[in-house]
């Protein structure tokens, strides 16, 4: 009475699988993963993907490229995090000001 072909699809773990991709007609991907053939819009994304997904099987060259890409991204990430801290401070300031004005008008 159980139908094995219809399993509970809400609980199928396949986090490691390759996501579906689609490349627009006018474009050629900048890079493609040699292991799972996933296409990427930038060389850097592909290099980073190698480290995230294929860290056990990669070559020494790929490893070196990955470490360089991580360093590159770290600089961008630092700038990004500065912006995040700025945005948080701004958000905080705006709300403090809003509360002060609103409560001030009431009091």
């Amino acid at each position: 009475m159980t139908d094995p072909s219809i399993a509970d699809s809400s609980a199928t773990p396949d986090g490691a699988s390759v996501p579906d991709t689609a490349i627009p007609d006018a474009e050629t991907p900048a890079a493609q993963c040699p292991y799972c053939s996933r296409p990427f819009r930038t060389e850097q994304a592909c290099t980073l993907h190698l480290g995230d997904a294929h860290g056990e099987t990669w070559t020494d060259d790929e490893r070196a490229a990955y470490e360089a890409a991580v360093d590159d991204e770290s600089d961008d990430l630092f700038v990004f995090h500065l912006k995040v801290v700025g945005a948080l401070s701004l958000l905080y300031a705006v709300y403090v000001l809003a509360y002060m004005i609103v409560l001030g008008l009431q009091g």
């Binding site: 995230d52 990430l77 995040v84 945005a87 809003a98 409560l103």
Partner: peptide, 29 residues
């Protein structure tokens, strides 16, 4: 609460925005 409801609701939106910003500081796979 003496705070008007629009401000409470807007604060809620701000909290979600802030929690995203804070979460973005956690970047270690």
């Amino acid at each position: 609460v003496a705070v008007p409801s629009w401000l409470v609701v807007a604060t809620g939106g701000g909290v979600i925005g802030a929690s995203f910003l804070l979460t973005s500081l956690v970047t270690d796979h």
